[in-house]
Design a protein around this nucleic acid. Structure first.
Lengths: 252, 252
DNA sequence: GGGCAAGTGTGAGCTAGCTAACAGCCGCTT
DNA sequence: AAGCGGCTGTTAGCTAGCTCACACTTGCCC
């Protein structure tokens, strides 16, 4: 995605031994895939990388209680994070599931409207974070970042609009199919046989929260898709899609 | 919203006599309320205003067919514009209704993903427009604009997320109530008696498209609200809300 | 001023999906 | 190895909301 940033790794990696937990080479390599830093000049990248702190959280950590809401931007290096709103009856509405390369929390930094949603790690996850001032400085010093931000928000808004359209027009079969295809597109690794695995722990309740349906209904729908070999689920709740066309047909 | 930009009107208004249809004083005053130009320095504002063209369209104009999609940014001075996707069965899903001060089309300029939605004027509407290069130059020359853009996208995304949550959890009563309150908040003028009028032509089909329900169901819900004097509708399809608390209660 | 297009109002009948209630099952923890 | 928390699977019964169908009003265009 961004060739220039690979140089952090070579030119500046060792510098971070000082005041930060050092990022491993593998982790620095992942920085290349962080959309927010795409196209950054090496010097700027270096400066920013010095203000990034790495931290690994166990599954189920509520990131909002780790730091003050609206004070930190997280960048996901590995793992998955669920952004959701809890309902009175204990069910969740899931706004988004984000994975490696995604950025969390920049919205509250910008408009400082309080966060209404909860952010929880789904698996053990390694994140980088940056405090408010570092982030705002970065925006100041590197206009590319602001542009990247605009692009990211713009594409999230597009996805949100698609989601709205899906909720307004599709039945539960269609909504589940659409959601799975969206994940496959964003995070999936297609294998030789045309199967795409979604490397996110996804329970049926999660899916229900994502598509705005009851857990029971989602169970039936998943059963239906499994029976037809459109998909399969492994013991760690990772879903593999075997027949993308068939699923796509449900979206109309 | 932005006091500095008022100076366009005094210092530069006359200059536009040259190659552009001149903007009236009243229209220039409206520029103050354009979020995109908030906080712009007078010189920059002047430069930009020279690249803006004003145009008035009758109700029902499809703006996508006036200009190439993805080539123009519109700024709404007066009137309302509906962004929607047409379904196979002739019904609409309405993504957004935008009014004075709002900006249309910047997303496609940024990520140049094609426009999927249709944009239509609801009433006679006066818009300013700016072509792709003028817009990109403005972003280059005035970083404030990029920041404003980030802020705008961020708040639209927030609204979209609220909409998703509403679709996933509320029944049609709740969704209609929420939608009306959102409009009241954004465009409403409260009067002495605590009534808020929504200055947008809103048919029941429009509402149905906005909340993802059938026209018939919306009819019933509106009837219910009318009966209880929560709202009333005038002959031009303008809805007035008389009991905000009662409506808010439906949102839970 | 007659007719048509666009919108509201209403009812009958049907169904997708909800709620509630349990019965497995699997894998961690002690 | 026993027990428990978390997740899947399934069913019965109910209802909100959909579809279809049609009558009524209003404003607008020719």
């Amino acid at each position: 995605m961004n060739p220039t940033i690979t140089t952090i790794n070579q030119s500046f990696g060792w510098r971070m031994l000082g005041d930060n937990p050092m990022l491993s080479d593998a982790e620095l390599a992942l920085l290349r895939d962080v959309e927010l830093f795409d196209g950054l000049a090496p010097e700027q990248a270096a400066q920013i990388s010095r203000r990034l702190v790495r931290r690994t959280f166990p599954a189920g950590t509520n990131l909002m209680s780790v730091e003050q809401p609206g004070e930190v931007v997280y960048i996901i290096l590995s793992g998955t994070v669920k952004i959701h709103v809890e309902q009175a009856d204990g069910t969740d509405v899931i706004i988004a599931m984000l994975g490696a390369g995604d950025t969390v929390g920049e919205m509250s930094l910008i408009d400082s409207a309080g966060r209404s949603a909860t952010v929880v790690t789904q698996e053990e996850s390694t994140l980088l974070w940056m405090n408010r001032t570092a982030f705002l400085e970065a925006l100041q010093n590197a206009p590319v970042i602001t542009l990247n931000l605009v692009r990211m928000l713009s594409s999230r808004l597009r996805l949100a609009n698609e989601q709205i359209q899906a909720l307004a027009t599709l039945d539960v079969h269609g909504r589940v199919a659409r959601q799975l295809l969206a994940f496959a597109q964003k995070y999936g690794h297609p294998d030789e046989a045309g199967t795409v695995q979604i490397p996110i722990r996804l329970t049926q309740s999660d899916l229900a929260g994502l598509v705005g349906a009851s857990r029971e209904r989602v169970n039936q729908v998943i059963g239906y898709f499994k029976q037809r070999r459109y998909l399969s689920v492994d013991q760690h709740y990772h879903i593999s899609l075997h027949n993308l066309e068939a699923l796509a047909k449900r979206i109309k």
